[in-house]
Design a protein around this nucleic acid. Structure first.
Lengths: 356, 356
DNA sequence: GCGCTCTACTAGCGCGCTCTAGTGATAGAG
DNA sequence: CTCTATCACTAGAGCGCGCTAGTAGAGCGC
């Protein structure tokens, strides 16, 4: 029976659930000023006295007025909204989203989240954002084809986090993958490891660079013979699957593994622990991302830190600067990674449980 | 009418950055019909011939027209948008979000995501959604005070997932916590366990019910003396912390644990595995949620399944029905949980590694 | 011819806001 | 006294769309 609306007559009719949401006009009337003045106050624009300002805010609060962003963006043709496309399961994305909110807010932008998932591809997620008039897009680890990214980039400021799109007019923020890998390998070598394997990240962001850097770093340390890239992707599944493969090798297995990312490292660790091996005694493990997972005290994963905060900050700044017309050409922000050594790395010292 | 734009007339070319985005009027002009007709076509309303319909769509496609949701919701005073508040790190939330999208789409609604996090409380997340004119709200495991929920519920249709708010005019979708717990305990008892502990979920959704049900189930099985509720919350940290406490007890530790949720179970498992104990030989573990994590082959967690798909379906239907005026009083949808036995539960049979 | 219905389409108001171009009112400068 | 400057505020035109009321024309029976 309570149908939404449609009958616009009868100004004083008792509205049902949720009474007509108060508008600027309501505030203006109640405060005894013009609608324009209220608008002024809410936009924090100059031209209103202190007292009036306060009264307007007070009245607004009383009647529960809240500016309508739809009308606002229609009228201003600026939405002040940035769209964020993410994969809802990815913990590193979660970290970044958390950081994006405050940074955007400080710059005066709102955030709209749109999730990609197996049943909802990235294109769809982006489409939703565009429909909501986002002025700029932050794409977290996009796997969209370059041509599509280029098309997007032609329409509005776009920044890709974690993946580069060379030759396309789109900004990118990512870490110097090679450096992180070099640090990780150097650390392991210093601890005395020689047989260091790498679980590949597949088509995931940064994987190609990491793979390449791994090979180079190994060669640089004179360990070319130990180079071993295990196929995988950036999921727990691939980590655990690889773990099983390695465990089957018994004493021939590597003494250290550099995983494609933290999730992968996690999957590997679980299986290894479960098999009764000691970490790092029997196997040292290094992750990549330093996502929330790695911090967890029971995991205590050595990993390559990619500062999600800094990523977020740069990405937002990137887009906002472009919107303000500060910058124009595509730019690439390369962040310094940092190896964080925690409890999953140590000298190779077999504990004798190898065939457990 | 100001002329469209001075230097940007070039049909067929994708719009350059900063170029005025095409409107309905543009489509109408180009197709040689009225604006109203275009509107008609895009709303899929009757009153346009097949041929016209097709031409309009084709022209729209050519110039890259995309309906502006802001204008749309302003004009119709219906946004056709449902807001979803979630905790970005929660895997069970991720599962639900994935299911919510298709269900909402099918019902003709869009979804707006807003994340709560340690640095962005739920109120703020909800505020953002309201500002975007959501017609209804889906709150995933809200921890907001009842009074605030009631306030929200008075304004618009709200459904809470996983947490009940008795006495408030707000719908709720949750599983029959007690049943799930009973099943889990029965399963463990049947396997021969007597000393079954429960890690509490703290203030998390469903925790109170689970705790109570645990106590009752234990009593029912004549195991009142073994009742043991360990303080915790619904994070990995609490699982691992509890694991350490239990491990310190040596042979006095319980033979089975019912965790507050899957994340908690995970934290516990990692520590237990790492300590070299066998699961389920030394300890059986049951989670709660059957989130994505539990499925992972290397975890293979026995857990109480809460169907996220069904949750999503019911929740969306709940809100939509209320919006359509089908229903009015607060309703509670209680779903049947289902114990899923996987690899982390088995008969208690100490493997002798207890002091590892 | 007339009225009637049905289909295909159009005119134009207004959703809640922003923003430009104003209006007075007061104050100091010449 | 007039002239300009500044401040506090207002009028009113849209932003892109939905939607109601309307029109034009075709078809049909009488």
């Amino acid at each position: 029976m309570p149908e939404p609306q449609g009958d616009t007559e009868a100004p004083g009719r008792p509205p049902r659930r949720g009474e007509r949401r108060p508008t600027m006009t309501d505030v203006a009337e109640r405060a005894g000023v013009s609608r324009a003045l209220v608008s002024l106050v809410f936009r924090d624009a100059p031209g209103a006295s202190r007292t009036t300002r306060e009264r307007v805010f007070q009245v607004a609060d009383e009647i529960g007025y809240r500016p309508d962003s739809a009308a606002r963006m229609l009228a201003s043709s600026r939405s002040k909204v940035l769209g964020v496309m993410l994969t809802v399961r990815n913990p590193f994305h979660a970290d970044m989203v958390e950081s994006i909110y405050p940074v955007a807010e400080q710059r005066g932008y709102e955030i709209l989240l749109s999730a990609a998932s197996p049943t909802r591809d990235e294109r769809k997620a982006v489409d939703a954002l565009l429909g909501h008039r986002c002025e700029g897009l932050l794409l977290l680890g996009p796997t969209l084809p370059t041509s599509y990214i280029a098309e997007l980039g032609a329409k509005l400021p776009v920044v890709s986090l974690g993946r580069r799109f060379p030759g396309v007019d789109v900004d990118a923020v990512h870490t110097a993958e090679a450096k992180g890998v070099r640090q990780a390998i150097a650390h392991l070598v210093e601890l005395g490891h020689r047989s260091i394997a790498h679980i590949d990240g597949g088509r995931g962001p940064g994987s190609a660079e990491r793979r390449k850097a791994y090979r180079e770093a190994m060669r640089k340390h004179g360990l070319a013979d130990y180079i071993r890239v295990l196929p995988g992707d950036q999921t727990e599944e691939s980590g655990s699957a690889t773990a099983k493969v390695l465990l089957a090798e018994g004493s021939a297995m590597p003494t250290a593994v550099l995983a494609g990312n933290d999730r992968c490292a996690l999957g590997l660790l679980d299986v290894v622990w479960r098999a009764g091996l000691q970490v790092p005694g029997d196997l040292s493990v290094v992750g990549y991302d330093d996502s929330h997972l790695a911090h967890l005290s029971h995991i205590d994963l050595s990993t390559v830190r990619q500062d999600p905060n800094r990523h977020a900050e740069l990405a937002v700044q990137c887009v906002v600067d472009r919107l303000d017309g500060v910058r124009d050409g595509a730019e690439e922000f390369v962040l310094e990674p940092k190896l964080v050594t925690r409890g999953t790395t140590g000298p190779p010292g077999r504990s004798g449980k190898m065939s457990a």
